[in-house]
Design a protein around this nucleic acid. Sequence first.
DNA 1: GAGTGGTCTAGACCACGCG
DNA 2: GCGTGGTCTAGACCACTCA
Lengths: 251, 251
Amino acid sequence: MSNASSSTLDTPAFSPLYLQIKGLILQGLQSGEWKPGEAIPSEMDLAARFRVSQGTVRKAIDELAADNLLMRRQGKGTFVSTHAEQQVQYRFLRLRPDQGDEHSEGPARRLILECKRMRATAEMARLLALRTGDAVMHARRVLLFAQTPAILEDIWLPAQAFKGLSAERMASYPGPTYAMFEEDFGVRMVRADEKLRAVHPNAEQAALLEVDVDTPVLSVERVAYTYNDLAMELRRGLYRTDTHHYRNTLA
Amino acid sequence: MSNASSSTLDTPAFSPLYLQIKGLILQGLQSGEWKPGEAIPSEMDLAARFRVSQGTVRKAIDELAADNLLMRRQGKGTFVSTHAEQQVQYRFLRLRPDQGDEHSEGPARRLILECKRMRATAEMARLLALRTGDAVMHARRVLLFAQTPAILEDIWLPAQAFKGLSAERMASYPGPTYAMFEEDFGVRMVRADEKLRAVHPNAEQAALLEVDVDTPVLSVERVAYTYNDLAMELRRGLYRTDTHHYRNTLA
DNA sequence: GAGTGGTCTAGACCACGCG
DNA sequence: GCGTGGTCTAGACCACTCA
């Protein structure tokens, strides 16, 4: 493995071996060479393939595991992370009941209110790295915990990557929506940014959440990214926080 | 370095060497052997002291650095993290202006409204691992960005660890409050949990934030911990989110 | 027992900061 | 030029999984 050197620039773009290996493994993940839930080759195999020592491969995998892109399991192998079959379903959902542990309420019920094609507004285009007017899929749904509406969400997706998405599929898929995105469209969300605000719902939103229009609700704007920081989803949610709260840990 | 073995339990409490080393370094941090901002001994020195190889010390330090307890600086050494002199001031503050980068507004202005001793309520006691009625310090303050009130905060601290805290000191200290806690009281906050809700301010809160009582604001309850998961601060904040938002990243 | 990841070591060399 | 952390290697052994 040679160094990515001899650039014409002054900045040598010098990169340690293990970061180059990390990039190569990342390429395999992006290209779909290894799919979510599958095992990647053993450290020894990768070391032989890339002509480096096992320790160097290990350091690359360590970082990818720290980023939640890979999961190591001693004695078994290293696996591509997935939103399915993960002990914690809803990996990106931070809403927790005030009483009781994590999700003592069981899985959420979903009501799909809408799912149709539309054209991206200027702001959607900006956030999703599209052009204004590009086709996007728009879905609207309500999540209920313990028979009570808790979340109203609008989801926008680049139509090109999500051909064939339907309300029926969203309603019938058992498990997290992000797991369905992996299974049906090969799109794995690896990271997301959220902006939170306290707002009042409008009349329509209030009705769907079964609250008064003067009940404060938590507005959550999320942009989710797949490999290589490519934005693939815009989500605007309203969370009821009268019986739940948004939990966060700072370190 | 021997293994922490021969327990009477079935569970061997077996721990890899590097984790034991990590624990020993943590002890040094807790005990104040190395203070925030100072350098700890070099990897070679620590390896000699603990009778292990440099690689084992390195792995222990790697984890402590990943936890933000230590900062590595190539060519210089490894330093104890601090809330002061950190490029990002306000490490635990997630409020960001809607326009402009991080804190284009410059440092916040602080108004200290109150700072006095009181007795812990049952809930404070529970969150701070005290007993109901134990002495706590209570401070109330307003933070202003760009001359506009943005945050109203109540802070409660175990009085025993914060003897001598005064409104004057809080107002005059240049830099983050958490840095003052380190400097004046030797208390370093390493982690915090937050619970967020959308609420309405009461009349007093609304007046202090210069908003109407029917303006939704973001309620942020924070419990901050020092080494060893010891709770040392309860903070209840109200954030205005009309010109700012709470930013979070999920991975 | 074979194969996987996990730990530990020892040694070589590189990149950076500073006197 | 020296000391620091950063990278890379090679080899040994341990712990876990599964056939």
